[in-house]
Simulated scan of single mutants.
Amino acid sequence: MYLKHLLSNPIFSKSMLLTGKLGLDRLVDSVNLMDAPDIIHYVKPGQLLLSNGYFMKKEPALMMDLIQQMDKLGCSGLAVKTKRFKLDIPKSVLEKAESLSFPIIELSSVNHSLGEILEQSTGYLLENKNHELQYAISINKQFSSMTLQGKGKHLL
């Protein structure tokens, strides 16, 4: 699923894209929630990271390193509740993320916990995967039926 589609989920209705608009076409395979300086060792390609920004407040330079490493790894973006710990995202970080087309999403206006956002996002992703699987099963059944009826040779 594209990040822009995940962000259309009602749980993100009050979120705000701070930077990286061109990165909204990044694929999201999963959502992760963690706040630790060594988070990069736990994120995966295609992952949207949710954070309250606590560890970044103490060392703002960590955010620059994090977004560069996440971009290199192929992560989908970073969604942060900046108001909880009064995190100011440095202008240099926003500019770097923009140059990388790496989305940074502000979640502070969202009236849900990060756990709720994680749960609903994961459910939305799984629902989408289920739809894809059902479609694949339907196509497989059609091809199998055609093959059994001797029409399979016309497919090649």
Rank of each mutant, 00 (worst) to 15 (best):
M1V: 01
L3F: 00
L3D: 02
L3T: 04
K4G: 10
L6W: 00
L7M: 06
S8Q: 09
S8E: 11
I11V: 13
F12W: 04
S13T: 12
K14R: 06
M16T: 07
G23A: 06
L24I: 13
R26F: 03
V28C: 07
V28S: 09
S30W: 09
N32R: 09
L33F: 05
M34V: 14
D35G: 13
D35H: 12
D38G: 06
I39C: 13
H41S: 05
Y42C: 06
V43H: 01
L48N: 04
L50S: 10
F55D: 09
M56C: 05
K58Q: 12
E59M: 03
P60C: 03
P60R: 01
A61Y: 08
L62E: 02
L62N: 00
M63H: 00
Q68S: 10
D71E: 01
K72G: 08
L73G: 07
G74D: 10
C75G: 06
C75H: 04
L78M: 05
V80I: 15
V80Q: 05
K81H: 00
K83T: 02
R84A: 02
L87R: 01
D88C: 12
D88A: 12
I89F: 02
P90D: 13
K91V: 08
K91W: 04
V93P: 01
K96A: 09
K96T: 12
K96M: 11
A97W: 13
E98F: 04
S99N: 08
S99C: 11
F102A: 12
P103Q: 04
I104L: 14
I104V: 05
E106W: 01
L107M: 09
S108L: 10
S109C: 08
S113N: 10
L114N: 02
G115H: 10
E116H: 06
L118C: 13
L118N: 04
E119M: 15
E119R: 14
E127W: 04
E127I: 02
K129I: 14
N130F: 15
N130P: 10
E132K: 14
L133G: 10
Q134W: 07
Q134K: 14
A136C: 08
A136L: 14
I137D: 12
I137A: 13
I137V: 15
I139Q: 14
Q142A: 13
F143E: 09
F143D: 08
M146N: 13
T147F: 11
Q149I: 02
Q149D: 11
G150W: 07
K151Q: 15
G152A: 05
G152Y: 10
G152S: 07
L156F: 13
